[in-house]
Design a protein around this nucleic acid. Structure first.
Length: 280
DNA sequence: AAAGTTGCCTGCAAGC
DNA sequence: TGCTTGCAGGCAACTT
């Protein structure tokens, strides 16, 4: 269930087991997830050493000591498990069905890294020299210095689309999904249906700060576990306990003295939760 | 058993 | 008219 904080949590869990290690065995259990995996996947990965593990938006990138990086996207239901000697036994996670283990990498020290994705909306591919179409149009990383209130304002200027939809558009800011958009809009006090281009500079600055704040707090909490997300250790993230609006339809607004009742609406086919009193 | 954390694609409308 | 851009909706496959 990965938005940026969940993907970052997975990246951090993976890094100590993968960076600097050589992949000695690759079991590809099916040819495709959302798209076909590259035909040379097994050949390219077998014997490769991972030199760096990065994240761009909701994508994990494993740089290899060959002319490519492995690109991983977890879609809606993707999980990564790490198992091996000295890592404790198989963690108890009955929701993971082995029939959805699609790719298993074994490193030189016997650790296995398993990509499990029931719905198969995820992706596995290589990024070769010329870049990758999935990465080409992505907007700024919200936690990087390049993401400023001014840049956000410029990206929203003139747009009549609701701010909720604009923030889900990965070309405007990369890495936000349904949960963190709802939470950021609540924290910024902005109504989800407000036209994106009709938010003043001061409120854009609040939104910018809210986006960063909620993402940083969620990363710190190991992400949010709804149905699918686990940290690579199998543990749950716990940011879902800090949701202020997501999934809280009909419940009272948590802002001191507000007294409003949270609502759910559907925008672009996705649920939006918000407080009609706080968010304007 | 309806709804779900993602994102691509299509089709239509609006704008230049 | 024709090209581009914007926006809404459908869809992929599976679980709870």
């Amino acid at each position: 269930m990965p938005e940026l904080p969940e993907v970052e949590t997975v990246r951090r869990g993976l890094a100590p087991h993968l960076v600097g290690r050589r992949i000695v065995r690759v079991d590809q259990r099916r040819p495709d997830l959302r798209w076909p995996m590259p035909p040379d996947l097994v050949q390219m990965l077998t014997g490769a050493r991972v030199t760096e593990l990065r994240r761009r938006s909701k994508y994990i990138l494993a740089d290899l000591d060959r002319d490519a990086s492995l690109l991983l996207h977890l879609g809606m239901s993707g999980r990564v498990r790490i198992e091996g000697e000295g890592l404790g036994r198989f963690h108890h996670d009955p929701a993971v069905l082995p029939q959805h283990d699609h790719l298993v990498l074994t490193t030189e020290d016997g650790t296995t890294i398993t990509l499990n994705d029931a719905r198969r909306f995820g992706a596995v591919d290589f990024v070769r020299g010329e870049g990758h179409p999935l990465l080409a149009a992505l907007g700024p990383e919200p936690l990087d210095d390049g993401f400023t209130p001014e840049r956000l304002a410029a990206a929203l200027a003139g747009r009549r689309t609701p701010i909720k939809a604009a923030l889900l558009d990965q070309r405007i800011v990369a890495g936000l999904g349904n949960i963190y958009v709802c939470e950021a809009l609540f924290r910024a006090g902005i109504h989800p249906t407000r036209p994106a281009g009709r938010i003043g500079p001061e409120r854009i600055a609040r939104l910018h700060a809210a986006i960063r704040e909620v993402l940083l707090q969620a990363i710190e909490a190991g992400g949010s576990s709804l149905r699918d997300h686990r940290q690579t250790s199998g543990e749950l993230g716990y940011f879902q306990h800090s949701f202020r609006v997501y999934g809280r339809e009909g419940q009272p607004c948590l802002r001191e003295g507000c007294g409003g009742t949270l609502r759910r609406i559907v925008q672009g086919g996705r649920s939006t939760w918000y407080c009609p009193v706080c968010q304007r």
